[in-house]
């Protein structure tokens, strides 16, 4: 039997154990397989593959799409994360207000998050459609545009159109998480500030924002990771087109892996993605743990 002391020393590990076992088996193990694969020459012809060192990484230079997709991915991730966070925060603040019917709004705004993405993407395609899409119809009747715009077919508009859908999809999640955080800010803090004569804006800056900091870090880090890896939206909406205008590293990896069956090269791209993401996020993570 363990002594009380030994037990309490082990306790943090015991609490973590189920989580760690699952993560090790279901996430860490395949990631390690992936990293190992990136050092082989495994593809559909050589399913076993032999060790080739960093050859796959050197090949990245030969594929102009890679750099293009990397640039697009940074652009996509930056704008989507920023859009989701800013709009999500605004929505959370609104939902936190003490008005009648807020419960209805809180439930309704979940829809973009919970609707099956493959179907929602189809609805978006129709909305964006050049000739019969409702977006052009509305903009035309408001006099904002004169001629129909092919939102997903023009190089100038395709990426922004996809980004808009990405932001749309993520707002509810950010809003709900931040709402939960807003709800746990003790009301006394605001009351004390009011007595001190602080206005709404001041309370927001001095009470709300600092209280949201911890959660905001987590939300931003996670939405960065998810959006960086998001592939199905673009895959369904444009398949990376027109040309490579909306090609992301995630869609590129998908094509390499599941259409071209170039397993090792796809894994090399994935490893690069992992490294880039780590650079982007670990700086933040170190501050919050």
């Amino acid at each position: 039997m363990l002594s009380q002391r030994q037990r309490s020393k082990l306790l943090p590990y015991i609490y973590l154990l189920p989580c760690l076992i699952l993560i090790a088996a279901i996430l860490l193990y395949p990631v390690l397989v992936g990293i190992y694969t990136s050092l082989l020459d495994r593809d559909m012809y050589t399913m076993e593959g032999v060790f080739v060192g960093l050859r796959n990484f050197r090949r990245l230079a030969d594929e102009p799409v890679f750099l293009l997709a990397l640039g697009n991915t940074l652009w996509w991730t930056g704008t989507v994360v920023a859009g989701q966070y800013v709009l999500g925060l605004m929505l959370a603040l609104l939902l936190n207000e003490d008005v009648r019917g807020r419960f209805v709004f809180r439930a309704l705004i979940l829809v973009p998050w919970v609707v099956p993405l493959a179907v929602a993407a189809v609805a978006w395609k129709w909305i964006y459609a050049e000739y019969y899409g409702i977006l052009n119809h509305i903009l035309r009747s408001l006099g904002i545009i004169r001629h129909n715009v092919a939102w997903l077919a023009n190089h100038e508009t395709a990426m922004w159109s996809v980004i808009a859908v990405g932001i749309w999809k993520g707002i509810p999640f950010v809003a709900i998480v931040l709402l939960a955080a807003l709800q746990s800010i003790p009301r006394e803090e605001y009351e004390a500030a009011m007595i001190d004569g602080a206005g709404n804006l001041q309370s927001f800056i001095h009470i709300t924002l600092p209280n949201l900091r911890g959660i905001s870090f987590i939300v931003i880090v996670l939405t960065t990771i998810w959006n960086f890896n998001q592939f199905d939206l673009t895959h369904i909406l444009t398949r990376g087109g027109p040309g490579n205008a909306t090609q992301l590293l995630s869609t590129y990896t998908y094509q390499l892996f599941f259409s071209a069956f170039q397993f090792s090269f796809a894994a090399a791209v994935a490893v690069v993605m992992l490294v880039v993401l780590m650079c982007l996020t670990v700086i933040y993570v170190r501050r919050i743990i």
């Binding site: 087109g241 027109p242 040309g243 094509q255 259409s259």
Partner: peptide, 17 residues
Amino acid sequence: QQFAELYARSAVQDMLQ
């Protein structure tokens, strides 16, 4: 299939535009 997905799809769309 590989060729179509990795190179040709984007090239055809770019040529058309």
